[in-house]
């Protein structure tokens, strides 16, 4: 299990272009093999927002801890950090030979476009799961709309884009709202 987690996060690290959020789609894909549900993925994303530090490290630690315990968390964190530790010395050594030119930027631009599609896809699947109670698009006949969740999703997107309120406050406020909804 620990070796498997190490290899999976090594793969995520080496294919993870474009930062923490771009990596999340890869992390969801790989962690679902360990049994991660959409709800647990959503909770991870919320914890990423509350807990300080780099999103990719937070996520690797969470997945490791959830599906393999203490050592798996450590191993996942180390594995996802490996690419940085390898590429930085290599670049510094061979800087002159590496073309940081037009062509590299072109390729990167394609990878980032793919990442954008992947994040939207994960977000879409998450909304499907949370707002419509469907685990994948093929089960759409069984959907049952969760109006509270859909309402919160729309409201938070609006508030976040319009007023740039701190994510921690939004998470705490929505938690409070969830509690109130239950009590009423």
């Amino acid at each position: 299990m620990i070796i498997k987690i190490f290899l999976v996060f090594l793969k995520i690290g080496f294919l993870g272009f474009g930062g923490g959020y771009a990596m999340l789609s890869l992390i969801y894909h790989e962690a679902s093999k360990f049994g991660m549900t959409m709800a647990q993925f959503a909770d991870m994303n919320a914890l990423d927002g509350i807990i300080p530090g780099l999103i990719a490290i937070n996520s690797a630690t969470y997945v490791g801890q959830m599906y393999g315990g203490f050592w798996a968390a450590l191993v996942a964190t180390v594995a996802v950090s490996v690419p940085s530790m390898i590429f930085v010395p290599l670049y510094v050594k061979y800087e002159a030979k590496i073309n940081k030119n037009y062509y590299l930027n072109q390729i990167l631009s394609c990878i980032k476009a793919a990442s954008v599609g992947l994040i939207f896809a994960v977000a879409f699947l998450l909304i499907l799961s949370i707002g419509l109670n469907v685990e994948n698009i093929f089960n759409w006949q069984h959907l049952s709309i969760n109006y509270t969740s859909l309402g919160i999703i729309v409201l938070v997107i609006f508030i976040y884009l319009r007023y740039e309120i701190n994510p921690i406050i939004l998470i705490l406020a929505s938690g409070l709202l969830g509690g109130l909804v239950y009590l009423i």
Binding site: Y21, A42, I152, L155, I157, L170
Partner: peptide, 20 residues
């Protein structure tokens, strides 16, 4: 409570995707 937080979490993912 978690249900509401998960909805917020989905919203964050959308806004992150949008800004990228």
């Amino acid at each position: 409570i978690l249900g509401a937080i998960r909805a917020t979490s989905a919203a964050f993912l959308i806004t992150a995707a949008y800004s990228i």
